[in-house]
Design a protein around this nucleic acid. Sequence first.
DNA 1: CAGTTTAAGTCAGTCATGTTGACATTCCAA
DNA 2: TTGGAATGTCAACATGACTGACTTAAACTG
Lengths: 170, 170
Amino acid sequence: MADGRGLSSGNSDSLLFLTDEQIRQGSEAMFFAYRGFTADPDRILIDLAYGRAHHRAIHFINRAPGTTVNNLLNILGVTKQSLNRVLRTLISDGLVQSRVGRNDKRERHLYLTDPGRALEQQLSDAQRARMRAAFRDAGPEAVAGFRTVLEAMMDPELRQSYIRLKDSST
Amino acid sequence: MADGRGLSSGNSDSLLFLTDEQIRQGSEAMFFAYRGFTADPDRILIDLAYGRAHHRAIHFINRAPGTTVNNLLNILGVTKQSLNRVLRTLISDGLVQSRVGRNDKRERHLYLTDPGRALEQQLSDAQRARMRAAFRDAGPEAVAGFRTVLEAMMDPELRQSYIRLKDSST
DNA sequence: CAGTTTAAGTCAGTCATGTTGACATTCCAA
DNA sequence: TTGGAATGTCAACATGACTGACTTAAACTG
């Protein structure tokens, strides 16, 4: 960090991938790829007057049915007030169902309704189509590297959430 | 897309990375990693009353000094009204300089001032630290795969912008 | 040269989504 | 059983995207 130029130029090229220039290109790749990543579902959501926040909520409720509001909060990284607005519209539109907890009545457990699942399917189909094409073009080794780097880039806390979700679906 | 379950389960595992479940994990990895990716600069920007949009503008002006407003618009993918608000504050805060074009006087060419460059350095240092650590942990092959997949995920138009920037800096 | 196009900037209005603050309900432990 | 902690909700506000309509200046074109 201190030198601002990364590795000095005399090094063996086995570390070329750690130069500041390489890192910067990695950042730009993240930026441009993320745009592509969200573009397809975004287009669908416009017509529904929903935004990306709705998509995220739907995605993770589908992924972990019965999850509580608080749990969803931690995964999404927003305030509960912000999530609540999204949830309220999804519930009143009949896409999400909220059930009072049996053991702890303070908790609300969230589930997708049939229409909610249909929308989730539509959104994730759109998103997956692009990613599947990218995976196919890049090949299995590149995909493995892709995931390794992304995992290393996460905050440790979020990495745990990610791994927990990953393992829960096997 | 039509089957909704990706590859059938009887296939050889050489294509296992293309199952819907794998793709979904890739999406979640993107989501969580992008959060980490933006977290560090975001923390710095809060104190300055700037947002992510300011960071992006500063980044790309630094990357392509003398770029025009229109060019920046295409790269950032926002409306000119939106960019203009950002640019106005950056210029009036003395971080960005706007010069009338020599050949075409309608154009404005954008440059970072010394304080602008200093902030760019601070922001990208924060962002690069995380990515450098991730790259180091993952190793060169993973990094290559990471970039391959991200590139394949971009919109073709943005991929061109990305490649142009990449090549211009060698 | 007149008319059109292009680049940039502005004003107004809308919307999604983030924030803080206040509050109700429920649970749990001293 | 009472007071604090946890969970979720409502209200108000801020921010930064967006669209649409418009102005100004310069460049291009028939």
